[in-house]
Design a protein around this nucleic acid. Structure first.
Lengths: 176, 176
DNA sequence: TAGGTTTGTTTAAAAGTTGAACCAAGCCGT
DNA sequence: ACGGCTTGGTTCAACTTTTAAACAAACCTA
């Protein structure tokens, strides 16, 4: 089959997307690096832990929600542990697993860093979007993400009840 | 001022965006790495050169459109040059500048690689979007990008006529 | 209990990124 | 034409990140 090239509209959208995502990620990384001394990914780990029940998550689950390899996560958590922001704990149910736990210091850093981060996200992204566009963005992205989920993980549903996490964030929302 | 936290809608949109962009970039990198032996950024360099007039671009301009530092671009172009896909040429008008030129071999690699890449972009992204959503995505992203443009580059318009590039891609559209 | 799978880490190598320093070339006012 | 400032691009060294393969321990299942 001959290649179905992108239509002009698609091409414009694609290029715009590339530019925007690159710029956005750079800006956020820069801000977080300056004010928090860590890259976005590190922050995301803290944030995800912070609104997990008990402030702890299995490495594998965390890797899965962050969409990174376990190997990569090991590296990140080791760095965070070195800085005292995260601590590892053994899982009682499954002795293979280890849990990453947000320490008090980690929580403090997060609370100190979150406002600036949120402000950045807001000013760079949401302040430039109408409410409709926010909805559109969510819909577009969830669609894309859903499609890409199964790509790596063959079958979709290996649910284990006891490691289901609540989807409702806690009081101080600390994005991403 | 107390932090304006993200609304639940914004939070959902933000998380969805993070996940989608991470997954998408990973998938594209993986595909390009496998079938083209290069990461997305390298491909982007080739693609941008391919539809520039004369298949050549000043380093600074290229860096600007790719939204990366000149230093980083130097690294990329050096690698591509090593592989014979790109060649450097002196600029006659401004002896400080150097031009990155797509070689025939580079063009060949691009033409061999483009279909797979486009197919990936299409299947992962555009096949999951309605035509309206394509439009929405473009609008959202151009808005974001425009906002972020000036952030680094103070004033907006240092136009130099002779280094204006046409915005209309050539016949075989080789995205991003 | 044997055999396969999942979890998480280790390791070494490669890759990428940064930032400062630097040089050469252009620009500009006097 | 002379200094001094700016721009374009590269270099270099340190550092961070990423990958992939190999591994061990714990689990699971028949």
């Amino acid at each position: 089959m001959t290649t179905r090239w992108l239509t002009p509209e698609e091409q414009r959208a694609w290029r715009a997307y590339i530019a925007a995502s690159r710029l956005l990620e750079d800006a956020i990384d820069r801000q977080l690096q300056q004010e928090g001394g860590m890259p976005h990914l590190f922050y995301s780990v803290l944030a995800n832990l912070s609104d997990a029940p008990e402030r702890r998550l299995r490495m594998t689950d965390l890797a899965e929600t962050l969409k990174i390899t376990r190997s990569r996560l090991t590296y990140v958590v080791t760095r965070l542990e070195r800085d005292g922001l995260v601590r590892r704990e053994d899982c009682r149910r499954d002795k293979r697993s280890s849990l990453a736990v947000l320490t008090d210091e980690g929580m403090a850093v997060l609370e100190r860093t979150a406002p600036g981060h949120v402000e950045t996200v807001r000013s760079l992204l949401f302040d430039r979007l109408t409410p409709e566009q926010v909805g559109q963005l969510e819909e577009i992205c969830t669609g894309i993400a859903r499609g890409l989920q199964g790509e790596a993980t063959e079958s979709g549903a290996d649910d284990v009840p006891w490691r289901r996490r609540s989807s409702c964030p806690s009081s101080p929302p600390t994005p991403s």
